[in-house]
Design a protein around this nucleic acid. Structure first.
Length: 431
RNA sequence: UCCUCGAUAGCUCAGCGGUAGAGCAUCCGGCUGUUAACCGGAGGGUCGUAGGUUCGAAUCCUACUCGGGGAGCCA
């Protein structure tokens, strides 16, 4: 019996007969030879069926296979310079498992609308497979980094009673007789967890009911949110640059084929090493005004501002110490300059925008209580959050990194929607 | 919510006032090294919906529906 294996391991079986199971990606044929492009999720390989070397019925099966038919192929592994990954399979036998009539996604160009309607099939294509593989490796790299650096994973709830930040629109739902909302950030829960476990992180979906319709926005997206006790603003940034560099270098090491499949220029990614450049908000405002952007101190950056700022550098850049007034209520003001907050956004190069938002959190009870009043937040809903400042409060910091934006940047995607298997977008809930 | 672009064959598009077109996909035939293979043939349409202008509308006008891109907001 020939050994069953997968395409990624085919090189170990040179000269031997093996069995592969997968789907027909494409077929090219002439009267007496058929080339089957087989994919099995781990890769793609060309199987060559020669009429003169096969029983008539086997060759007929090869001719009858349609795009995305499932099949089992047995053949001899050969090296071939003409093959794209160096190996070919010379077909000895083929078993048609299930035919595929009228497969909707041909190998020609398609529009976005059509592809998104067929997302459940679109993910079978090599490019989409590669992106999902890289996404998986990004999560794997994050998990490894956290594990190597003493973090504990804590999973905050998805159903929440109130807003975490009070800014974005929330998805409303019912929790029996109460109102409930889908989480837009687990941060406040992670602050509580950091006081219990020291260094913690979460990974999971978040929801924003914003009518956002750009290449950088999804309605449901994954956020990874580390939170660290006894870490101040500067250390927070140092951890972030180590973290992002670790992820990028991990992907470069483990996803060379996938990066090639998506057409990424990896020389840009190779630059992603600490330290990352840092600009203060003040410096950024000055730079923008020196470069023909009109923006006053106190205004938030728009997407074109962020793109222009980030375009100066070959790796992500921190913009730190934004005006307290335009940032979230829980951010620690600079003790020497309370009008700015000890926070930083990390902007990815090449126009991918903000991938991380982070800050040192207010640890002083009286100041946080004052912020609740200023922002007119219902204290009864947040009393547990104030408790964290009542009992052994410590300096702590954290950040949130957007998974799809990070994957889109690493892969060089036009749009974050390709970074999610089934993206939830404005006006698009199916499939 | 605002700005902007679009909707014609299963898919990608052309046609922009005078009888509905191409490439791919599908089906039939040909080809022993193809790389989105190629060559020949065939079938395939309420031109998003509803009104209007006109002798005549896929084409011009109005409204609506659905979608793309962008802004704001954010990761």
């Amino acid at each position: 019996m020939p050994t069953k294996t997968s395409i990624q391991n085919i090189g170990q079986f040179l000269g031997q007969s093996v069995t592969l199971q997968g789907w027909l990606y494409n077929k090219r044929s002439s009267g007496k030879i058929v080339f089957l492009q087989l994919r099995d999720g781990t890769g793609t390989i060309q199987c060559v069926a020669v009429k003169a070397e096969l029983p008539e019925e086997v060759f007929q099966i090869c001719q009858s296979l349609k795009q995305e038919a499932s099949l089992r192929v047995t053949g001899e592994v050969k090296e071939d310079e003409r093959a794209q990954n160096g190996y070919e399979l010379t077909v000895q036998s083929v078993e048609l498992l299930h035919q595929s009539d009228d497969y909707p996604i041909s190998l020609k160009e398609h529009g976005v609308d059509f592809l998104l309607d067929h997302r459940h099939l679109w993910i079978r294509t090599p490019r989409q497979r590669a992106i999902l593989k890289i996404r998986s490796e990004v999560l794997q790299a994050m998990t490894l980094f956290f594990s190597e650096n003493g973090f504990t994973r804590v999973d905050p709830p998805i159903l929440t009673p109130t807003s975490c930040e009070g800014t974005s629109e929330l998805f409303h739902t019912q929790y029996f007789d109460e109102d409930a909302y889908l989480t837009q950030s687990g941060q406040m829960y992670m602050e509580a967890a950091a006081m219990a476990l020291g260094k913690v992180y979460s990974m999971g979906p978040t929801f924003r009911a914003e009518k956002s319709k750009t290449r950088r926005h999804l309605i449901e997206f994954w956020m990874i949110e580390p939170e660290m006790a006894f870490v101040d603003h500067d250390e927070n940034m140092r951890i972030q640059e180590q973290f992002v560099s670790y992820i990028v270098q991990h992907v470069l090491k483990h996803c060379a084929i996938e990066l090639k499949t998506v057409g990424r220029d990896i020389s840009i990614l190779q630059n992603v090493q600490p330290p990352f450049p840092r600009m203060t908000y003040d410096e950024a405002i000055k730079w923008l005004n020196d470069n023909n952007y009109e923006i006053a101190w106190g205004e938030d950056f728009g997407a074109p501002h962020e793109t222009a700022l980030a375009a100066q550098f070959d790796r992500p850049v921190f913009i730190e110490r934004y005006p307290t007034a335009i940032k979230a209520f829980y951010m620690q003001p600079d003790p020497d300059r309370p009008e700015v907050a000890l926070c930083a956004d990390l902007l990815a190069p090449e126009g991918y925008g903000e991938i991380i938002g982070g800050s040192e959190r207010i640890h002083d009870f009286a100041l946080l209580e004052k912020r609740f009043e200023e922002h007119q937040l219902p204290k009864e809903d947040y009393d547990w959050y104030l408790d964290l400042r009542r009992y052994g409060s410590v300096v702590h910091s954290g950040f949130g990194i957007g998974l799809e934006r990070t994957v889109a940047w690493i892969c060089g995607l036009e749009h974050v929607r390709e970074a999610a298997a089934f993206p939830r977008m404005l006006y698009r809930l199916k499939p």
